[in-house]
């Protein structure tokens, strides 16, 4: 850890303390991840006798993973389809709408924006029954499209709200310069909005993708056929068992988050760099 401070120019003595505090916080924050990893290869008995430390590699129960894969494996294709399409469409529509709200004050845009915002404030416990009857009347029950469309609609409000704030922060000159170059609205979005608000788009994408990835209530209620379930449903089944096989549960959780981890490993720099906001300086 000391490498960091020795190689930096103009270091301050307090950095070491900062590192210690940060690592202490991460120790707690990363505990669930660690537990998931080490529990995923344990049997219930070895977990109970030794909950906190990893089991010796010789005792690792790889069968947990084959069980977990057997349980949720069939749902991965559905989940990828729903989450990818849903997130992409959701972001595209939200960026368009946020662009509209952030760039122009058209007649009626205040009212429209308020309409979106009101929705964010609505507590929606009893809404599930009307939503269900609506999907039924649209013949969307038992289709993946129901998940995608409801997911897109559900993600709009928050995304528009956040994106609008960020697009408003983009210096006006950039848009003006683009307009002088004769850029259309779509070109402005592509060349100004998306690069400038990449960080928040990345964060929103992760959040949306995660939400759709783990959602279980809607798929459970909307889907009748097992072939159409998504990962969240598989996980809730495992967790709904009365005697919990913690090893299997954690293995399944780990399998379910694996695609996310892989995706993230490859693209984290994009997101994190985006979040450091380097682009905003331009």
């Amino acid at each position: 850890m000391s490498h960091a401070s020795t190689t930096s120019v103009g270091r301050k003595p307090s950095d070491t303390l900062s590192h210690i505090i940060i690592w202490a916080i991460f120790a707690i924050e990363l505990l669930p991840f660690y537990m998931m990893l080490q529990m995923s290869v344990k049997t219930n008995t070895s977990f109970m006798t030794n909950p906190w430390l990893p089991a010796p590699p010789a005792d690792w129960q790889w069968s947990n993973f084959s069980y977990g894969l057997g349980l949720i494996g069939p749902y991965i294709a559905n989940t990828v389809f729903v989450a990818t399409l849903g997130t992409a469409a959701s972001l595209f529509l939200a960026i368009c709408a946020a662009y509209f709200f952030a760039r122009y004050r058209m007649p009626g845009s205040d009212i429209l924006f308020a309409m979106f915002m009101f929705l964010m404030l609505m507590p929606g416990v009893a809404n599930i029954v009307p939503l269900f009857t609506l999907l039924k009347s649209m013949n969307l029950l038992n289709t993946l499209w129901a998940l995608i469309i409801v997911g897109i609609a559900g993600g709009q409000v928050f995304a528009i709200f956040v994106l609008k704030n960020f697009i408003e922060e983009i210096p006006k000159d950039l848009f003006e310069a683009a307009e002088i170059d004769g850029a259309s609205h779509f070109q402005q979005m592509r060349n100004v909005v998306i690069p400038m608000s990449a960080p928040i788009i990345g964060t929103l994408a992760i959040l949306m993708f995660l939400g759709k990835w783990n959602d279980f209530m809607l798929p459970l209620i909307v889907m009748r056929d097992k072939e159409l379930f998504t990962l969240g449903v598989g996980l809730i089944y495992l967790n709904g068992e009365y005697v919990k096989q913690w090893g299997r549960i954690m293995a399944a959780f780990l399998i379910a988050s694996m695609p996310l981890i892989i995706m993230f490993l490859f693209t984290m720099k994009l997101f994190v760099r985006g979040l450091s906001g380097g682009a905003v300086k331009g």
Binding site: L93, F100, P107, L112, G124, N127, L131, Q156, H185
Partner: peptide, 30 residues
């Protein structure tokens, strides 16, 4: 000017429609 720039509304229209149908309808029904 809005009359000229009416196509700007198209940017918000898809979101609006989706939200009206899948979020507003259940909420108003509630």
């Amino acid at each position: 000017k809005a009359l000229h720039e009416w196509q700007l509304y198209l940017f918000v229209l898809p979101s609006l429609l989706l939200v009206l149908v899948f979020a507003y309808y259940p909420a108003l029904s509630a």
